[in-house]
C-alpha cells in the first residue's frame, strides 16, 4: 500500500503542480463537445433517414432515396468508428484537397456515425406510434411533414428516449478513439499525465472514474427528461 500512496502522490504532483489538470479539462471539454455535437448532428440525420424509411414506397424517387439511406446506414454501422475517422482524415480530406482539424473531423464523423444508429432507433420509435395519429393529422389537412414534426416525432422521441440515452453514453465512451486523428480527449490527457509521472496505474484509474461520473450524471438527466415528457400519460 505504501507503494500505492507514492503513486497517488506522484499523480497529484503531475496533475496539480505540473498543471496536468489543464490537459484534463481540455480533454473533458473535447469529449463533451464531440459527444454532444455528434449526438445533435446524429439526431437530425437519423430523423431524416428514419422519415425517408417510413415514407410510402410507391414513388420511384422514394425508393431511390431509400436505397441511398440504406447504403449509408450499412456503411456506418458496418465499419468501426476508428476506421471511419482514419478514412475521413487520411483518405477523404486529402482526396478532396481540404484541411480540417482533428477535432472537426471527429465531430463530423461522430455525427455521421450516430446518425446511422439513431436512424434505426428513430424508425422503431416512429413505428411505435399508432398509425391513427398520422391519419388524424392528415385528415384535418396538415401535410405529411407537419404531422410528422408536430405529432409523430414528439411521441416517437418519448418512446425512444432511454435508447437515445444509451447512444449518447456510447458516444461519450467512444470519444477515446479520436486521438487517432490527433484530437485531445480524456484518454490523451491521462496518458500525458502517466507519461510524465512514469506510472499509469492511478491516471487510468482516475480516467475510468471520470467516465463513470459523467455517465451517471447523464443517466440521471435522461431519467428527469423522461419524467417530464411522460406528463401527457399522467392523469394530472
Amino acid at each position: 500500500m505504501g507503494n500505492f500512496s507514492a503513486k497517488i502522490a506522484k499523480f497529484i504532483e503531475v496533475l496539480i503542480d505540473r498543471r496536468g489538470y489543464v490537459k484534463v479539462l481540455e480533454g473533458l471539454q473535447n469529449t463533451l463537445i464531440i459527444a454532444v455535437l455528434g449526438l445533435a448532428i446524429g439526431i437530425v440525420i437519423g430523423t431524416l433517414i428514419a422519415t425517408v424509411r417510413v415514407l410510402p414506397k410507391y414513388r420511384r424517387s422514394v425508393r431511390v432515396l431509400n436505397g441511398a439511406c440504406s447504403v449509408y446506414v450499412d456503411f456506418f454501422r458496418g465499419t468501426p468508428m476508428v476506421a471511419q475517422l482514419l478514412l475521413f482524415y487520411y483518405v477523404m480530406l486529402p482526396l478532396m484537397g481540404l484541411h480540417m482539424s482533428g477535432m472537426n473531423v471527429s465531430i463530423a464523423v461522430f455525427g455521421l456515425n450516430s446518425g446511422a444508429y439513431i436512424s434505426e432507433i428513430m424508425r422503431a420509435g416512429i413505428q411505435s406510434v399508432d398509425g391513427g395519429q398520422m391519419e388524424a393529422g392528415r385528415a384535418v389537412g396538415l401535410p405529411f411533414s407537419t404531422t410528422m414534426l408536430k405529432i409523430v416525432i414528439p411521441q416517437a422521441v418519448k418512446n425512444i428516449l432511454p435508447t437515445l440515452g444509451n447512444e449518447f453514453i456510447a458516444l461519450i465512451k467512444e470519444t477515446s478513439v479520436v486521438s487517432f486523428v490527433g484530437a485531445a480527449n480524456l484518454y490523451t490527457a491521462f496518458n500525458y499525465i502517466g507519461t510524465n509521472a512514469y506510472e499509469f496505474m492511478v491516471p487510468y484509474l482516475a480516467m475510468a472514474i471520470i467516465y463513470i461520473v459523467i455517465i451517471l450524471l447523464i443517466s440521471f438527466g435522461i431519467k428527469m427528461m423522461e419524467r417530464g415528457l411522460n406528463k401527457s400519460d399522467r392523469r394530472h
Binding site: 391513427g132 391519419e135 388524424a136 384535418v140 389537412g141 414528439p154 418519448k158
Partner: peptide, 21 residues
C-alpha cells in the same frame, strides 16, 4: 389533397386524438 381535406372533417373509430397535445 390537404386543401380539400380541410373542408372534409373525419372522425375515426379509435378517436385518434393527438396524444402529445
Amino acid at each position: 389533397i390537404n386543401i380539400h381535406r380541410r373542408k372534409m372533417g373525419m372522425v375515426f373509430q379509435q378517436f385518434n386524438l393527438f396524444n402529445n397535445k
